[in-house]
Design a protein around this nucleic acid. Structure first.
Lengths: 218, 218
DNA sequence: GGACTCATGTAAACACTATTAACATGAACT
DNA sequence: AGTTCATGTTAATAGTGTTTACATGAGTCC
């Protein structure tokens, strides 16, 4: 007999082996299916093949599991954004456009993460770790805002932080209102991607950033 | 026959008299307290002083009560927005500024409505009445966008619908990320109102709308 | 090897929720 | 009066979050 963990069923007798990980993955599946509200601690346990009380060995309560999902979400979000941004290479505006598309793409393809991060109502003040993860993701937008601001032509440079917050708000607004399943979807005259791109072009133009073509005539 | 609802205690024997209304109000209280997820059908019934099964005479299920709250929310939202906008009087940009502040004010002072409307995940496709109520509120933003676009100086006028969607996305993004209790609040260098005003000024400038002062120098 | 410990699992219990079914009441209409 | 029907009740089912007491087994020290 071969009891190694590569067995079809694995050893998996009394101890699961990697329950914490399995629960996070189960939560992701379930949230993606039925929204963050429909996600159930008990069902996650069932999905992982353990008793309903087992998860409490790894998470204080249901909210802590949700927070754990959100934490990982912010981490993957940061990775996706910074990969798209790629430090503004090879060209600032192309990279900026990729950044916006990556934002929308994450919200669409990872609705479970996105819900946990922004809609589950987890308190950031009581969870510094989560806040820091969010800040790291936001730092990518901030870095992009920095390079954008450096190109502004006005007498005074716009404040980087403000611009970063603007970019975040627009992206989140579009992703949240139009970017996902038909839960809140309305019939749009254009794709969320085009909508975001147009808005950012107009905004950059208002900022006095050069090399941006007129948005009204594509 | 003066058992109108103005009676001191109302008849209130076996029949409540106005349970549907009472349930909606109870839901509002509860959502405001503990978020849309923490709201409970049973607790709403308790709050109204009836048995847990009574609400089912007025709402098919919990979601339908939530949808009812959202419906009323859109109606009040429309009222608030159109009152602030006041058809662009006495001056376009002052009215537009009021509109933005009214948006944020609604999200802050009526978080229960706002959550039910945008975060409860109620399907709009399966609820035409709700969708229409949302469209009526959006129509105010659209009307504002119309007048804004008419002032655009470029060769071609920007499409009204697109501009309206942009305004909506920005407002919702700021309200949703920074506009309410500390659930998702971050430390900001400025108030949500100032943040929104600045973003709209830059946007309008990018749109080529006249009479807008430079945003970078207040 | 054997005993001790501790993280990690189970089972049983409690209070609570959504929802339904069967029954009760009373307001309105003939 | 009596009937009807909307609107309430009670009782039951099934599923949930969470706690408590107990069980197991992997690693550690002798």
């Amino acid at each position: 007999m071969n009891w190694s963990k590569d067995d079809k069923r694995g050893p998996r007798g009394y101890h699961h082996g990697n329950l914490k990980e399995a629960l996070v993955r189960a939560a992701l599946e379930l949230i993606a299916e039925k929204g963050p509200a429909g996600f159930t601690f008990a069902e996650a346990a069932r999905w992982a093949g353990v008793s309903p009380a087992a998860p409490y060995r790894h998470f204080r309560d249901r909210d802590e599991l949700l927070a754990s999902v959100a934490l990982r979400g912010f981490s993957e979000f940061e990775t996706a954004l910074s990969h798209a941004w790629d430090d503004g290479r090879p060209e600032l505006f192309a990279a900026f456009d990729r950044l916006g598309k990556a934002y929308l793409d994450f919200a669409r393809t990872e609705p479970a993460y996105y819900s946990a991060m922004f809609e589950a109502g987890i308190s950031l003040t009581s969870n510094p770790e989560l806040r820091e993860a969010g800040d790291r993701a936001f730092a990518v937008l901030r870095a992009a805002a920095e390079k954008i601001c450096a190109r502004a032509s006005g007498r005074t440079k716009p404040p980087t932080l403000m611009v970063a917050l603007h970019i975040w708000a627009v992206s989140h607004g579009i992703a949240s209102l139009f970017g996902r399943g038909d839960a809140a979807r309305r019939t749009l005259p254009m794709s969320p991607e085009d909508l975001l791109e147009a808005e950012m072009l107009i905004y950059l133009r208002g900022l006095g950033v050069a090399d941006v073509q007129s948005p009204a005539s594509p």
